[in-house]
Each structure stands twice: as C-alpha cells, then as structure tokens.
C-alpha cells in the first residue's frame, strides 16, 4: 500500500505553514522528511495519518492494506506516549483489545513483537522502570503489534542520547532488513536521515515546500557509523539547509 500526499497546503490563521506539497511514499521504503525547525514537517506527518486536516489537498491510500493489518497508519511518537500505569505488556495489549484480540492470540502477538524488539524479559516492567531507549522500543513493539502498512515516525530518536540513538538506529535497520516496512520518518537530524532513508525529502523553511528529494541507493544494512559516502550526502543536505536553518533560527516566535 502506498501513500500519496496530493497538493497539501496548510495555514494556521494568517500564517502559511505548508505550500503545495505532493509526495509519494512507496511501499517498503523509508522516506525521511528533513527541514529547518518550524517548516511544518511534523504537521505534514499528522496529516498523513489523519490526526489533523490540511487546509487544502488530500491524502490518498493507494491500494489496500494487507489482510492482517489492524491499523494501517501507525505512529511512533517522540515522547513514546506509553501509558505509565500499564506494564510493557499492558501497553501493547491496549492496542489489541479494541480489535477484540485477547487471550492466547494476544499473548502470541505480544511475545512475537517483544522478541523482535528484544524486550521479552521486560513484559511486566512499568514504563517508569525503563530507560528512554527501552521505552521507545516498547513503542516500536506496540506499533509492530498492529501490523501497520505504513509507520509514521515523528522524531522517534530525538528524546534519546546519542549512544542510545546509534543503538536504536541499528535496531531499526535490523527490523527493516528482516521484514521491510513502509515508513515516513520525520527528523531534524541529518545523520538519522542518511542512515535510515531510502529517500530524503528536504523541506524549505516556512511556508514549507519541497526543496529537493535525495535518493540514497546504498542498502540500509551496508550503511555504517561514519560512512564516508553517507557523509558526503549529509554534507550536501546541510548545504541545502544551512541558510534556511539560520534564518529560521532568527525568526521571532509569535505563536
């Protein structure tokens, strides 16, 4: 199943946030959205999953999601969004309960996603007992449990320290390599973009529009830490963004 953003524009009152964005998310690929702060990349992601409505334009699902998919468009949030009063297991069963999946069937799904995210030993732990990296792995496990057609990831690693981030990037790569998934990955971190993106979409500053789309052909599994080829691409991306980032940084906030 593909996702198409068709001529999306959006404004908050007088302020124009996004202008005429058309973008295809092809099945089985990770598309990274990068851009200076305030360019509307997170807003775009919320449109993509139907959490907000754009002023103009449409979001289209092309094709039908696979049969066993419970929640085609599934988010992973920057702040993890785990229910603190539920255990790791409870947080995952939360999203299954509404689909009537309980008992042995739920246990099987939970055991599977916990194994995939290397959390099998922590099923009974409460979120307050977990580190940031583990919390995000729980959130990923929860997303995997509903077998999504597209993962919508909103700066999933931004709340983590840089070492944890490296480890989680490896985990994501492993997950994707085993079973390729479709994802829109919003980040301000260019390193993440070049490590995880098959395609990197650079947005301009407000009002956000597509500046350039960079394709990276190197397989995810072959991209490593301090890869010189990737650094060249990262430098190219930074050159595209530097002036805009500076200008965006100097903008007065009048929210």
């Amino acid at each position: 199943m593909d996702i198409r953003l068709d001529a999306i524009s959006h404004s908050y009152g007088e302020t124009e946030v996004l202008r005429d964005i058309t973008l295809d998310i092809p099945s089985g690929k990770i598309v990274c959205l990068v851009g200076p702060s305030g360019c509307g990349k997170s807003t775009l992601l919320r449109f993509a999953g139907g959490l907000e409505r754009p002023t103009a334009g449409r979001i289209l699902q092309l094709g039908t999601p696979p049969q066993n998919c419970l929640n085609p468009l599934t988010y992973i949030f920057q702040d993890f969004a785990l229910l603190p009063w539920r255990s790791v297991r409870g947080n995952i069963s939360l999203v299954l309960e509404d689909h009537g999946i309980r008992g042995a069937r739920a246990d099987a799904i939970i055991a599977d996603v916990l194994a995939r995210t290397k959390l099998s030993d922590f099923a009974k732990a409460l979120p307050k007992q977990l580190s940031g990296g583990m919390k995000q792995r729980v959130a990923i496990a929860r997303a995997l449990a509903v077998n999504p057609a597209v993962m919508l990831m909103d700066e999933p690693l931004s709340a983590l320290d840089s070492q944890t981030r490296e480890l989680l990037m490896d985990d994501l790569v492993t997950l994707w390599t085993r079973t390729p998934f479709t994802a829109v990955y919003v980040t301000h971190n260019l390193n993440e973009a070049v490590r995880l993106g098959h395609r990197v979409v650079v947005l301009s500053r407000r009002p956000g529009s597509i500046r350039e789309i960079v394709e990276i052909d190197k397989p995810l599994s072959e991209r490593g830490y301090a890869d010189s080829e990737l650094e060249t691409i990262q430098k190219h991306l930074w050159d595209l963004m530097r002036e805009e980032a500076r200008a965006a940084d100097e903008e007065l906030i009048d929210a």
Binding site: L70, T74, Y75, F77, R142
Partner: peptide, 15 residues
C-alpha cells in the same frame, strides 16, 4: 499526547 496516541491506534471513544 496519550489521547492522541489512542486516536492514532484507532481506539474507540469509550476505550
């Protein structure tokens, strides 16, 4: 953000 998470997973209003 927790409520938004619930909505994003398609939980019913009552849930």
């Amino acid at each position: 953000s927790l409520i938004r998470m619930g909505q994003s997973f398609g939980l019913s209003w009552l849930s």
